[in-house]
């Protein structure tokens, strides 16, 4: 769906943020992890056409991103910003969520339907007339997710969706990701919550210093202890516990741990 070849980018002359990135994305749900400053957000802004690459190419559905405006790309690729205040414009929750769909020329009726459907998913459909700025931070994050989901793009990227979410909020995001996967969309997420990665994403890409350090099935990635350390990334808690106890296989969830524990006794 997306093909990135030899991509490089820098904000100023001194420091290169991304260098020589080669990646291909299929429809597997993908987590992008790595330290602050590793280049994760920059990469997704390039895909979305918000920044222009110094070198290299990004192809989405075989079309070169550099030949398209951000407005044209908006029909194909949606991005939920890390800071909700960067993307809230309107005075009511409903208008806010309809803003994107109307901008990509969806008719008003469809836009409203999509908006309400998305607001139901994040359980804000009882607050349609509220001013978005009166919502709490966690609600604003969910509102922004709904705004992008309503645009019904093929590709959806979340930048740190679980910030400020409690257990219930994370559960809603988990269900949204699943619903998008079921609709055969490519879901990508930049995230620091490794437990959430382990439980929800098929593929994980580790960025370090502007380059791809690791890329593969989430389980394989979290078994590469030494490389993870290089990128200052920690495996999920349950994975660390299993490893300390000497389990042979990489464990990603509590259920896997319990199953494995039954067939295993620790070395004395």
């Amino acid at each position: 769906m997306i093909k990135i070849a030899n991509l490089s980018f820098s904000y100023n002359k001194e420091t290169r943020v991304l260098s020589g990135i080669n990646l291909e994305f299929d429809r597997r749900s993908t987590a992008i992890i790595g330290q602050n400053g590793a280049g994760k957000t920059t990469l997704v802004k390039l895909m979305k056409g918000l920044l222009k690459a110094d070198e290299g190419k990004i192809l989405i559905h075989e079309h070169d991103v550099s030949g398209k405006t951000a407005a044209q790309l908006a029909r194909t690729i949606g991005l939920v910003f890390q800071n909700p205040n960067d993307q809230i414009f309107k005075r009511t929750v409903l208008d806010e969520v309809m803003f994107g769909p109307l901008n990509i020329k969806m008719d008003k009726q469809t836009a409203k339907e999509k908006a309400i459907e998305a607001l139901k998913m994040v359980e804000l459909d009882d607050k349609l007339e509220m001013n978005p700025h009166d919502l709490s931070l966690s609600e604003k994050k969910l509102l922004c997710i709904a705004s992008v989901v309503a645009m019904d793009t093929d590709i959806i990227i979340f930048d740190e969706p679980t910030i400020a979410q409690d257990h219930g909020g994370k559960e809603k995001i988990r269900q949204i990701i699943q619903a998008l996967k079921d609709k055969n969309k490519l879901v990508m997420t930049i995230i620091h919550d490794m437990d959430f990665v382990a439980e929800n994403f098929e593929r994980t890409i580790v960025f370090n210093d502007g380059q791809v350090l690791l890329d593969g099935e989430t389980r394989d990635v979290f078994s590469q202890k030494e490389l993870l350390k290089t990128a200052c990334v920690e495996a999920p808690g349950i994975t660390k516990l299993a490893e300390r106890l000497g389990f042979k296989d990489t464990v990603l969830t509590v259920d896997e741990f319990i199953n494995m524990k039954k067939t295993y006794s620790p070395p004395q």
Binding site: Q35, N36, Q82, I163, A164, H192, M194, C232, V233, E234
Partner: peptide
């Protein structure tokens, strides 16, 4: 929530 925006090492 002082570390919501930080990576795990941070």
């Amino acid at each position: 929530e002082p570390t919501s925006q930080l990576d795990p090492a941070g």
